[in-house]
Simulated assay, not measured.
Amino acid sequence: MASDDELPEIPVVCPECDTRTSVAFDEVERAVERHNEQLHDGEAVAEVDPEVLEALTDRLGKDLGLF
Rank of each mutant, 00 (worst) to 15 (best):
V52E: 11
V12W: 00
A24S: 11
K62A: 15
A46L: 02
E33I: 01
L53T: 05
A55R: 15
V52M: 11
R20E: 13
L66V: 13
T57C: 01
T57L: 03
E27H: 14
V13S: 02
D49A: 14
D41H: 03
I10Y: 00
A31I: 04
H35Y: 11
C17T: 05
L64G: 04
A46T: 01
R34F: 06
E27D: 15
S3R: 15
V13D: 01
V12S: 01
L7W: 10
E37N: 13
A24Q: 14
P50C: 10
D5G: 03
T21R: 13
A31L: 05
N36C: 05
H35M: 08
V13A: 03
D18Q: 15
V52H: 12
P15W: 11
E37M: 09
A31Y: 14
R59W: 06
R30W: 03
V28Y: 04
L39V: 04
L39A: 08
G61L: 10
E51T: 10
V28H: 08
E29N: 09
T21A: 12
T21G: 02
E6Q: 13
E54W: 00
D5C: 07
E9G: 03
R59E: 14
H40N: 05
R34S: 12
M1C: 09
E27P: 03
D5N: 10
P15S: 08
H35Q: 14
V32H: 02
R20V: 03
F67D: 15
K62F: 03
M1R: 12
R20K: 14
A44F: 08
L7S: 10
A24E: 15
D4L: 13
M1S: 14
V28W: 03
T57W: 03
S22L: 13
V23T: 13
L7V: 03
E33M: 05
S3G: 15
V48I: 15
P8C: 10
D5K: 09
V48Q: 01
E27G: 07
E43Q: 14
F25K: 04
L60C: 07
G65Y: 09
E43M: 07
E9Q: 12
V12L: 03
P15T: 07
H35A: 09
E27R: 15
Q38N: 06
E9P: 01
A31S: 14
L66T: 05
L56R: 06
D49L: 14
N36A: 04
P11K: 02
P8Y: 10
R34C: 06
H40G: 01
I10H: 00
